[in-house]
Write a protein that binds this DNA or RNA. Structure first.
Length: 259
DNA sequence: AAACGCATCAACCGCACTGTC
DNA sequence: CGACAGTGCGGTTGATGCGTT
């Protein structure tokens, strides 16, 4: 009879966060089920993955959703349904869990309230939205996002899976520039890409945009440890979060992991 | 100050999907 | 083709905080 090791549940402690971050920074993500053991965590792989994806991962934006983000979520939810991961893919720096929570606790109620008031009022709101230029802009942005298909590595079969990719020293531009321009006609993607590459050093914000644009094949999980390393270095280079208006203990962890 | 209700969000659970053998 | 392992996703729950009585 195999004795199951004790697996802790519930809220993560500061110490556990430290261990997971330190481990991933050093070795990258290779196997969620095995990692906790080596990282000295008494957690399931699932729990580690969730904690990482929803809280510890760099470039996660926390705090209040902007009006534009709200409109985007509402629009995408209407179009895509409760496909939170798909919605999150179109909202840089927000996690699917955050979006799901925000929808369930706030937006859904608001929508229900609006519907309850009267259907005519809803129509009125829609037309007033169209009149309002900023709202119209956000609506247009949503349309662009909806039309935009995120490319994956499948779109670039020329690129070998073991290609060394280092955003921090712009190897990426050398490796994929031609393929990218050749394959992508979408100006939105092209602008994001150029915006990032115009900088000598790719900022974490731009990195996030690129990561989203290039799909999961270019994220940590899709890459082996060799390819992971440059990305890890990138995080070390600039572990800055977009939302800087409040204290976040995770930011503190990234800057001072061994406090 | 205590009790209560509600809102929020981190985390869990179960299922589905995908890749490998 | 089926079994299995690893991973991802969406629904749900439970702990916590906050406002109200």
């Amino acid at each position: 009879m195999v004795r199951q090791p004790y697996l802790k549940k519930g809220t993560w402690s500061h110490d556990e966060d430290q261990k997971l971050i330190a481990y991933i920074r050093k070795y990258g993500i290779w196997n969620w089920n095995e990692m906790p053991k080596f990282a000295g965590l008494q957690r399931s792989g699932k729990s580690c993955r969730l904690r990482w994806m929803n809280y510890l991962r760099p470039n996660i934006r926390r705090g209040n959703f902007s009006r534009e983000e709200e409109e985007t979520i509402i629009h995408l939810q209407k179009t895509l349904g409760n496909r939170w991961s798909a919605i999150a893919a179109r909202l840089p720096q927000r996690t699917d869990n955050d979006i799901k929570n925000y929808w369930n606790t706030r937006l859904k109620k608001r929508i229900m309230g609006e519907k309850k008031n009267s259907s005519s009022a809803t129509t009125e709101t829609k037309s007033s939205m169209e009149e309002n230029s900023s709202d119209a802009d956000s609506s247009m942005m949503v349309d662009i996002l909806l039309d935009y298909q995120i490319p994956t590595m499948d779109d670039f079969p020329e690129l070998a899976a073991d290609t060394t990719i280092s955003l921090s020293d712009c190897d990426l531009s050398v490796a994929v520039d031609d393929h990218y321009n050749m394959a992508m006609d979408n100006n939105l993607v092209y602008d994001h890409y150029n915006m990032a590459m115009d900088n000598n050093l790719v900022s974490s914000e731009n990195y996030w945009e690129i990561e989203n644009l290039w799909g999961q094949s270019l994220t940590m999980e899709g890459l082996d440890c060799e390819v992971m390393s440059p990305n890890s270095q990138l995080w070390l280079h600039e572990p800055i979060y977009a939302c800087d208006s409040y204290y976040d203990p995770v930011v503190e962890l990234w800057f001072n992991p061994f406090i």
